[in-house]
């Protein structure tokens, strides 16, 4: 039987994954820290701590990581974390950037998986290294320079996925705010397709727009937004990988909500 996961479904259902676990033709990647992985992980999953990917995210480095994890161009990949999908999304993006096609998020976090009573293990599967090509996918990447060039364009929407207070305090001029929490729904890391479409519709964001997402520093929270948008079929989504931290360090223009002491409304 062919074990390929239907690549039209953008997110892998936890029940379906259980069925696939025993088949060696899919690669499950756990992006938590090594120590957490060692204490127990989804059976048959391999570990890629996000920090390792972030340490060098050149395409050569991503390619090597993929190959070391036994991921070839054809391998279906499922990624999970314990951080509402934000870390995994960043890894999804990196693999897609070097041209990998079949990579998905698990619809629940590791904790939820465990709470459901599904299989976990401390065993580390043996990995046979694979060969992966590099076919850069430039249309999913935004740099500061690019963002600055297109941000006034009518068809461009910049989305800031940080929390509301951070956004109010400072953001890229013209950006709108969709806090990463907005992307989730009860018990799942992402909203339903319909829920996501309603959110965009209410906000007046056209699915034909060029959407660029960013967050605080390394593109995790905005990676989740990137993935959420891609998963409902928005064709043109880019991740500003180095996000607001870089934008600020480059001393690019910043907007803020003036004349209000909103921080003092926070209970923290």
């Amino acid at each position: 039987m062919c074990c390929m996961i239907d690549s039209d479904i953008p997110i892998i259902n936890s029940k379906l994954l259980r069925e696939k676990i025993q088949e060696n033709s899919i690669r499950i990647v756990d992006v938590r820290r090594e120590q957490e992985y060692q204490q127990g992980h989804i059976t048959n999953s391999v570990n890629l701590p996000l920090a390792k990917l972030l340490a060098d995210d050149s395409s050569e480095s991503i390619q090597k990581i993929a190959q070391d994890l036994g991921i070839s161009d054809e391998t279906p990949v499922v990624i999970y974390d314990d951080t509402f999908g934000a870390l995994s999304s960043r890894v999804v993006w990196a693999l897609q950037y070097i041209g990998h096609k079949d990579v998905k998020l698990l619809d629940v976090t590791f904790s939820q998986w465990k709470d459901l009573g599904y299989e976990i293990s401390t065993e580390v599967p043996e990995i046979e290294t694979a060969t992966h090509s590099v076919k850069i996918n430039p249309e999913i990447m935004a740099t500061a320079e690019y963002l600055e060039k297109v941000k006034e364009n009518k068809n461009v929407v910049i989305i800031d996925n940080r929390e509301r207070l951070n956004y109010l305090e400072q953001h890229i001029p013209g950006a709108i705010n969709i806090p990463y929490r907005t992307l989730a729904s009860d018990g799942k890391i992402l909203r339903t397709k319909e829920g996501m479409k309603t959110l965009l519709k209410n906000r007046g964001i056209s699915e034909d727009a060029e959407i660029i997402t960013y967050c605080g520093s390394v593109g995790t929270l905005s990676g989740l937004a990137y993935y959420a948008l891609k998963s409902i079929g928005v064709p043109n989504v880019k991740l500003y990988v180095h996000s607001f931290k870089e934008w600020k360090s480059l001393e690019k223009p910043i907007d803020k909500q003036e004349n209000a002491n909103y921080w003092d409304l926070s209970a923290e």
Binding site: R164, L165, R181, A184, D186, S266, E268
Partner: peptide, 13 residues
């Protein structure tokens, strides 16, 4: 609680 994180400032009043 959930709505405050999704649509507001992570606190309610």
């Amino acid at each position: 609680a959930q709505l405050s994180e999704m649509y507001s400032i992570g606190s309610a009043h």
